[in-house]
């Protein structure tokens, strides 16, 4: 019984850590490789989650669809929709400086959040979308271990893609842009175009993470993600792990997720009447941790290989 509970928790824990790892990898493409700041991670994540939910659930009058399509179609659709949203906004913002882009992504996430809440025909508004099937549950059953396996498979897939992209000539151009944009455009490369590709690629991974989340939890609503905290956690994960290093993104995701979960145990000990304060305290701790990392070890646990020192 004890053992069982522990095992269940472990599976649950690792699945969520895996989803965060995909987000951290996506952010690593945007920030780590290219130097773009995306404060709207939760927006792309939500677009992915809703897309896959609409694509895979049973037909409903409450929202668009569902189209009752298989899980893999949902994931692909999630990635495509997130990528589309990123491309639409990126076409306009890719020529901007990184701090302007950061502000723009806040706007994107906010608009997505408002739309999810208010466009009932599309998302069923605040009531959310229930009954999202577990991955391959029709053939393999609803064992959480299956979900974990699927998520870890996607982590491996995402890692492989991002790592290949990083070591390819494409990744080298991105890093060159990050270090010396003028030099790259002087060499005749279309900087905005490369940036856009990286932004879209990263966003599609965030969409993928959203789909995994939807299928893992089974129910999504606008309030289900605590959007800003999600975005923030992913940032702390990447900075702690080492921006620019894909192993760093994985290690950071796991380490911060361990820390985040551990603080939950600590604050749970305070008792239910302090639940909201406890939540705030946890966020505060992570916020302080970020500052400590930025000041004391800005390169993170696993620094980017061959990176310039500041």
């Amino acid at each position: 019984m004890e053992m069982d509970g522990l095992l269940t928790y472990g599976v649950f824990f690792l699945t969520q850590a895996g989803i965060y790892a995909v987000l951290a990898l996506g952010l690593n493409v945007q920030y780590g490789l290219t130097g773009q700041i995306n404060i709207g991670i939760a927006g792309f994540f939500a677009v992915g989650a809703y897309t896959s939910a609409i694509v895979t659930t049973h037909p409903s009058t409450a929202h668009l669809g569902g189209f009752n399509l298989p899980f893999p179609v949902g994931v692909v659709a999630a990635m495509a929709t997130s990528a589309l949203v990123a491309a639409a906004i990126g076409r306009i913002t890719m020529r901007l400086r990184s701090d302007y882009l950061a502000i723009a992504t806040i706007g994107i996430a906010e608009i997505i959040r408002l739309a999810l809440k208010n466009e009932d025909w599309l998302t069923n508004g605040v009531r959310g979308i229930p009954g999202i099937p577990r991955p391959f549950s029709e053939t393999l059953g609803a064992n959480p271990l299956i979900s974990l396996g699927v998520v870890l498979g996607f982590v491996a897939f995402a890692f492989w893609m991002v790592e290949r992209a990083r070591s390819a000539p494409w990744g080298r151009v991105l890093r060159a842009i990050r270090e010396n944009e003028d030099g790259v455009s002087a060499a005749g490369k279309d900087v905005a175009h490369f940036r856009l590709q990286a932004f879209v690629f990263g966003a599609s991974l965030m969409g993928m993470a959203g789909a995994l989340y939807a299928h893992f939890i089974g129910f999504i609503s606008p309030e289900a993600f605590l959007p800003l905290y999600g975005t923030f956690l992913v940032w702390v994960m990447l900075i702690a792990g080492g921006a620019g290093n894909n192993w760093g993104a994985l290690v950071g995701a796991l380490a911060i997720w361990v820390l985040w979960s551990a603080t939950q145990f600590m604050t749970d000990a305070l008792g239910a009447e302090y639940a909201t304060q406890a939540g705030a305290l946890r966020v505060l701790l992570i916020g302080v941790l970020l500052q400590v990392i930025l000041i004391a070890r800005p390169q993170g646990l696993l620094p980017e290989r061959g990176a310039r020192k500041h």
């Binding site: 130097g35 700041i37 404060i39 990184s98 701090d99 950061a102 800003l228 905290y229 923030f232 940032w235 702390v236 900075i239 909201t276 304060q277 939540g279 705030a280 305290l281 966020v283 505060l284 992570i286 916020g287 302080v288 970020l290 500052q291 930025l294 000041i295 800005p298 500041h310």
Partner: peptide, 28 residues
């Protein structure tokens, strides 16, 4: 102050963290 010599992008991320921390303090 400890980040004055860091690139502006790092300060921006730091201030994002401060924003979240301040909000937590308010909630607390």
């Amino acid at each position: 102050r400890h980040l004055r010599k860091s690139p502006p992008i790092i300060l921006l991320i730091s201030s994002f963290g401060i924003a979240i921390a301040l909000r937590s303090v308010i909630q607390l």
